[in-house]
Design a protein around this nucleic acid. Structure first.
Length: 444
RNA sequence: GCAGCAGUAGCUCAGUUGGUUAGAGCACUAGUUUGUGGAACUAGGGGUCGGUGGUUCGAAUCCACCCUGCUGUACCA
């Protein structure tokens, strides 16, 4: 007996994977439809690439590990490693490199797709999630970078956010590069740990970041993080440079000018935006939500950015001889959905079916007749799909939020006039079949 | 990965210093007479008390290890 129990299949989901229900999916669909509309307006092409790629194709920027499944989901297929994509940028670079000669440049594409990451999930973060990307390939024009920021702002506003509820932050990789020259930092490993430390200014503040730049820091759970081991004078220079309120690098100055021409002002220069990515070469941006987000227990949690991007001029050239400067942005849709669902006014209308009650199976022909009339009038309709008494059918209709039920029993069949019951008011009305669709539409 | 906290019914939780057949609310199912939902009442189903091992006459309760979740932290292409 115990053996049988042990053989039962698991009903649990793997870590970081979730079932998504209608409520969430409707919000997601709403966001997606806004995105598509705006993408068309901005002139981007729609592209889809497969979920799997050769690990080698998208793995150029993975940490050089012996195991190809570090951070990604991979398996070996006929001696070649395949990986589920971890973002949409690396597959884009692969796509460009493969089809370089056929693609007219500049190339603008947008893409919606699920990506997978084999890492620890956090609040609003899963191991499988939907991402939206828009990229310009084959142009050095900073108009592209500026337009991405403006476009993302338009998407968020279209989704119902006000200017106070989000902010586009911009910076440039050039700022930190110049800084490294200034303090004579050349070792790549140390550069990276400085960048990582600076990335946390927003969350931890300068006092803690100074610790990370020097000997290291202990967080409130008692865990210790190694520092970058810089000396005091260098840290002072970094701090002074990064506290500047206005950009001085030529790329940002130009973007600011373009913003002005577009009358776009919901941005903020923030030199502490790092984005941790090694491949960025120029302007970088990040989109932050400004309102509180709570978890399932009602506690306010740190939500962070819902997306970002920047210029990556060397990514395509990694594949061969083609050189294509590029810039792009990506948004984590599920995180945006999670945040948007917490805004009270966010109720998406969903049309639920009118339920035709079954009194007698011998009358199915009549029920189907009514259903056909309603469905051909594009009214969501169903004949009660279960079995049972009228009471049970009413309970069902109530539970699925049906706007009305149609009663077509013995009495009604005699007169040929079905009764419709409005489930929100409880009122019933005898209606001729001719007027049925019209009356139901009034209720919906 | 590291650290702190937690795991009792589908959900939210109670369970006294270890002591009989482990409880509540909500949800679910059936019924409160024939064709009427959202309320009430009655009855019912449902738990290897996260898992394994140990201490004990006896463990949901104590100990060890493991698993899972939450939160922070690290990594994040």
């Amino acid at each position: 007996m115990t053996k049988e129990k042990n053989n039962k299949p698991l009903k649990e989901l793997p870590l970081g994977f979730v079932d998504r229900k209608e409520k969430e999916l409707l919000v997601r669909d709403f966001i997606i439809s806004n995105i598509k509309e705006i993408m068309i307006k901005y002139g981007f092409q729609y592209l889809e690439t497969p979920s799997f790629e050769y690990t080698d194709s998208i793995g150029k920027f993975l940490p050089d590990k012996d195991r190809p499944d570090e951070g990604v989901f991979s398996f070996k297929d006929e001696n070649k490693w395949l990986s589920l994509r971890y973002d949409l940028t690396a597959p884009l670079a692969r796509y460009i490199a493969k089809n370089y000669l056929e693609i007219s440049k500049p190339f603008k594409r947008y893409q919606l797709g699920t990506v997978w990451r084999n890492e620890k999930p956090g609040p609003g973060r899963f191991r499988e999630f939907l991402q939206f990307d828009a990229d310009f390939v084959g142009t050095n024009n900073l108009q592209a970078d500026a337009e991405l920021c403006i476009m993302i702002a338009e998407i968020l506003e279209k989704c119902g956010l006000s200017k106070e509820e989000y902010k586009v932050k911009i910076s440039s990789r050039k700022i930190t590069e110049e800084l490294f020259k200034k303090i004579n930092l050349s070792e790549n490993k140390q550069k990276l740990s400085v960048l990582r430390a600076l990335d946390k200014i927003d969350r931890l503040g300068w006092t803690e970041v100074r610790k990370l730049l020097s000997e290291g820091r202990k967080d409130k759970s008692g865990d210790f993080t190694d520092g970058a081991n810089l000396d005091k004078s260098k840290i002072e220079i970094i701090e002074k440079e990064l506290k500047k309120k206005k950009p001085v690098t030529d790329d940002l100055l130009e973007i600011l000018k373009i913003f002005k021409d577009y009358k776009f002002n919901n941005f903020e220069f923030d030199p502490s935006i790092i984005r941790g990515l090694e491949y960025y070469t120029g302007p970088i941006f990040e989109v932050n939500l400004k309102f509180d987000v709570t978890n399932s227990k009602g506690k306010v949690i740190q939500f962070g950015s819902i997306g970002g991007g920047g210029r990556y001029d060397n990514l395509v050239s990694n594949f061969g001889n083609y050189d294509a400067p590029a810039t792009g942005i990506s948004i984590g849709l599920d995180r945006l959905v999670y945040a948007l669902m917490q805004k009270k006014e966010f109720k998406i209308k969903q049309s639920k079916p009118v339920v035709i009650c079954v009194f007698d199976k011998n009358s199915m022909k009549e029920y189907i007749g009514l259903q056909t009339i309603l469905r051909s009038a594009s009214i969501s309709t169903e004949i009660y799909p279960g079995e049972g008494k009228l009471k049970k059918q009413m309970e069902y209709a109530n539970k699925i939020n049906a706007p009305a039920v149609i009663l077509y029993g013995e009495n009604e069949l005699k007169s040929g006039k079905p009764t419709i019951r409005n489930l929100s008011t409880g009122k019933e009305k005898s209606i001729s079949i001719k007027e049925l669709s019209y009356e139901i539409k009034k209720i919906i």
